[in-house]
């Protein structure tokens, strides 16, 4: 009950930080999609590059997030303290599920379907936009959903380098040993992750339903 009172009395700050958090996740996921899908398409078409690039993206995923923020801070141009550094780290983390699902979705397409499309006289671009991407869409969206949920969690840590977001409450709560503050950051973040999972799951089912042949 104490927590709810705290929540209500600090509602402006909660809303403010939630909005910041949403912006962080929205921007980083969009970045991961904008980089990850074209990268995945490229890797699906060039098998030779596939394992080195996926391996590299995988390695990034294994770096603990606090360590990655620490590595980025001293770097020139992209580094420093603040939102832009945090966004770079978040994009790097969200990349793996988007890239690997794009590759998996595209190479999982029935070869007979691709052969029929080429033999019907589709250009490379038509093959990609009319056949390959629509068929891989369900799997790609799964990757986007996973990336978003990961992003919501990781963005809390971005507060450590001054990027704002709900992590501000959590870190402050940890420093002050105040569980109300920790919960005020953790509960909205968890709700956001669940909501993202639910909404994106709906979209995914809507677009992915017809690909089962």
């Amino acid at each position: 009950m104490e927590f709810i009172e705290f929540f209500i009395s600090h509602r402006n700050e909660v809303l403010q930080l939630t909005a910041e958090h949403l912006v962080l996740v929205g921007l980083s996921t969009s970045g991961a999609v904008l980089i990850g899908i074209p990268l995945g398409v490229g890797l699906a078409r060039n098998p030779r590059w596939r394992s080195p690039v996926l391996g590299f993206v995988n390695v990034i995923q294994t770096i603990p997030s606090l360590a990655l923020f620490a590595i980025l801070i001293p770097l020139p141009v992209i580094g420093g303290i603040g939102t832009s550094t945090a966004l770079i780290a978040l994009v790097l983390y969200s990349l793996l599920p988007v890239v690997s699902n794009t590759v998996a979705g595209l190479i999982g397409i029935d070869p007979a379907v691709r052969e029929a499309a080429v033999a019907m006289g589709m250009t490379d671009r038509q093959l990609l936009w009319k056949v390959e991407l629509p068929l891989a869409l369900g799997v790609i969206l799964t990757g986007v959903r996973v990336a978003t949920v990961i992003g919501v969690g990781l963005a809390t840590i971005a507060a450590a380098i001054g990027a704002g977001g709900l992590g501000v409450f959590i870190f402050r709560g940890l420093a002050m040993l105040d569980s109300r503050l920790i919960l005020a950051g953790a509960i909205p973040a968890a709700a956001m992750a669940l909501a993202a999972d639910l909404i994106l799951g709906r979209i995914e089912r809507h677009f992915g339903a017809r690909r089962t042949a």
Binding site: D110, A112, V113, R114, E115, A116, A117, V118, A119, M120, G121, M122, T123, V131, P134, L135, R210, R211, T212, A213
Partner: peptide
């Protein structure tokens, strides 16, 4: 031109290869 050539040729394969979407 491979695209023009293939548009003039119908092709049926055993696996059919219909577009599931």
């Amino acid at each position: 031109d491979p695209i023009r050539l293939r548009r003039r040729i119908g092709y049926v394969i055993q696996e059919v290869g219909l577009f599931p979407h």
